[in-house]
């Protein structure tokens, strides 16, 4: 895979996207530099999830260019998109798991599909880090919302991706768990990972800004703008 231009891992250049002819994002430009921490906020339906999906190739922009690690998503083959997703950890809003597999197997799934040997110790360490060491044999439906969110985070980082995109990672959990998840993401950022979190939880953003230098982007009127100091 091509190595991207140093200084940016994901870049959106004049990107537009709409559903059924209805524009959702218009001429959005954005650069995520290595090790940066971004929040993406805005009202429900503003296009936060869509923007994240554009960033990992789940959607293709109707206009403009999306580059991930220096490669234009439009010119990527499906295999290249798959390879790119191994470098981008995604914590999905719906916490998608395979219910017939154990938690440990779900967390190890990115290793399994990439053909890398699954070290039991590696998975166990990760589950311990997210506080789920006692649930490794549980099936996803047996877990609480917070446990599933942490499991999704563990799965997103097991390949040691350069970027982590989290879509409403604290959407279904209480404040205490939200802060715990945020701390895990901040810790990852301190390890050098690029983080972008889509959330409408302004309290979470304020809490994060006390711990890490984060840029806050707001989607409004189909545009992405840098949020003001009121956050």
């Amino acid at each position: 895979m091509k190595t991207g231009e140093p200084g940016r891992v994901i870049e959106l250049d004049e990107v537009s996207y709409g559903y059924g002819g209805v524009p959702l994002l218009g001429n959005v430009s954005l650069k995520l530099t290595p090790g940066s921490f971004h929040f993406l906020t805005g009202p429900s339906g503003a296009g936060k999830t869509t923007l994240l999906k554009l960033c990992y190739g789940a959607l293709t922009a109707t206009q403009g260019r999306v580059e991930v690690f220096g490669q234009d998503v439009r010119t990527m083959s499906r295999d290249e998109v798959a390879m790119t997703r191994r470098r981008v950890g995604v914590v999905h809003q719906e916490q998608q798991f395979l219910d017939h597999l154990s938690l440990a197997e779900n967390v190890a799934l990115p290793l399994t599909v990439s053909g890398r040997p699954t070290e039991a110790g590696e998975v166990a360490d990760l589950l311990t880090w997210v506080g789920l060491s006692n649930q490794k044999a549980s099936r996803p439906p047996e877990l609480s919302g917070g446990e599933r969110q942490r499991a999704a985070l563990a799965r997103a980082i097991i390949m040691s991706p350069e970027v982590i995109l989290a879509d409403e990672p604290t959407g279904n959990v209480d404040w205490e768990m939200s802060i715990r998840l945020l701390q895990l993401l901040v810790e990852l950022n301190r390890m050098g990972k690029t983080i972008m979190i889509a959330t409408h939880d302004l309290n979470l953003i304020r809490s994060a800004k006390a711990q890490v230098q984060a840029r806050v982007l707001r989607i409004s009127n189909h545009q992405v703008q840098l949020a003001g100091a009121d956050l």
Partner: peptide, 8 residues
């Protein structure tokens, strides 16, 4: 899910 985690 498999596509999301990078399966070809």
């Amino acid at each position: 899910v498999l596509r999301l985690v990078g399966a070809r």
